[in-house]
């Protein structure tokens, strides 16, 4: 049998375990894939599931911070028990399944791509509701008792700053804006808040949105124990406003509504100013991530035009960092 036939047969068997065997094979459709994880849509009539697995089944963490797919499934289950909108984990893959590392989860309808969510009439009411819904959901995540969770890496703001600084230094290039942001963040770091479960990549692109708003929080791969302001600020980073800079929260919402909803649902009381340091750290991190992706091109590991192009997006984050520094000085 070919690899594709093996894959289809194995997936049919797992699908049968979940929904009951049937002579008809499920339809299998690739949704996305590439450097990080593969996503497949598997369906037979009205029964639908999503397979999220490592590329070709082989785990190769996209970042040293990634927690692995089995742990990701555990976190999604913990979030579901806490009433957070997430898919239902249907099956965690084991070696006898023959599909590698990954899990199957319930299919949730909606849109993940930022531009239609931010622009299409269809999502007009969703946009009105999203800031509040995101505030509530993040409070829920941050309130999950960390003692009930699997072992997770701990990573606070200053730790991340020095981690990313080391990566930047490793490239051996002179980027004065990054130097200025690093020095400013080192000199103005806020006191760390008590550690909570942090999603780690909470922004449009990883949120399933339907016409009423937030339907599910996806991609828990970068979850860790950290400072709650990291999640609150990451979605505010200008790169994740997708052109709608005037709406600080994800390009759709106002920070006051977002933080009020967060506090109302049991999260700590933060002011918009409390988010500033973390937003600047977020822009710096994204800028250095763009450098990492360009490095994959430069080194020959990934010769795609897309990896080359991303090197010319580092200046976007430099502009954002300067705008933030200027606003701070004003």
């Amino acid at each position: 049998m070919s690899i594709t036939q093996d894959f289809n047969t194995s997936l049919k068997a797992v699908f049968g375990q979940i929904f009951g065997d049937d002579v008809t094979s499920p339809k299998i459709r690739r949704l996305s894939g590439g450097a990080s994880q593969e996503t497949w849509h598997v369906s037979r009539e009205d029964k639908r599931a999503i397979l999220r697995r490592a590329p070709n089944g082989v785990s190769r963490a996209r970042s040293s911070a990634a927690i692995g797919l089995a742990k990701e499934a555990q976190l999604i289950e913990a979030a579901r028990e806490a009433g957070i909108p997430v898919p239902e984990v249907l099956h965690v893959l084991t070696p006898p399944d023959g599909l590698g590392d990954g899990f199957l989860m319930s299919h949730i309808s909606g849109e993940t791509i930022a531009r239609p969510i931010l622009r299409d009439e269809q999502f007009a009411s969703a946009r009105e509701a999203l800031a509040q819904q995101c505030g509530h959901a993040l409070a829920g995540i941050h309130c999950i008792p960390t003692t009930t969770l699997p072992d997770l890496p701990e990573s606070g703001g200053l730790q991340q700053l020095s981690q990313y600084e080391a990566i930047y230094r490793g490239f051996g290039v002179s980027r004065p804006v990054f130097e200025l942001a690093i020095a400013f963040l080192q000199d103005t770091a806020p006191t760390a808040a008590p550690l909570v479960l942090v999603h780690g990549d909470f922004r449009l692109g990883n949120l399933m949105v339907n016409e009423s708003g937030l339907a599910a929080i996806l991609d828990w791969e970068l979850a860790h124990l950290g400072d709650p302001r990291e999640d609150l600020a990451w979605i505010c980073v200008n790169s994740w406003r997708f052109g709608q800079s005037q709406n600080r929260v994800g390009g759709f919402g106002q920070i006051e509504d977002f933080l009020a909803a967060y506090h109302e649902a049991g999260g700590a009381a933060f002011t918009p100013k409390d988010i500033d340091w973390w937003e600047m750290l977020g822009s710096l991190k994204w800028g250095i991530m763009c450098m990492i992706m360009y490095e994959a091109f430069r080194s020959g590991a990934d010769p795609s035009v897309e990896r080359a192009a991303i090197g010319r997006r580092v200046s976007e984050t430099e502009m954002d960092l300067l705008n933030l520094l200027e606003a701070h000085n004003a």
Partner: peptide, 28 residues
Amino acid sequence: LNHLKQTTMAQLRVDQPHYSGLRTAENA
């Protein structure tokens, strides 16, 4: 800050002239 802003704005006009942060910088 003024020097870095001039340099980065010039760079962005080459790299990504439609980026929202460039408009923010111009308006500031």
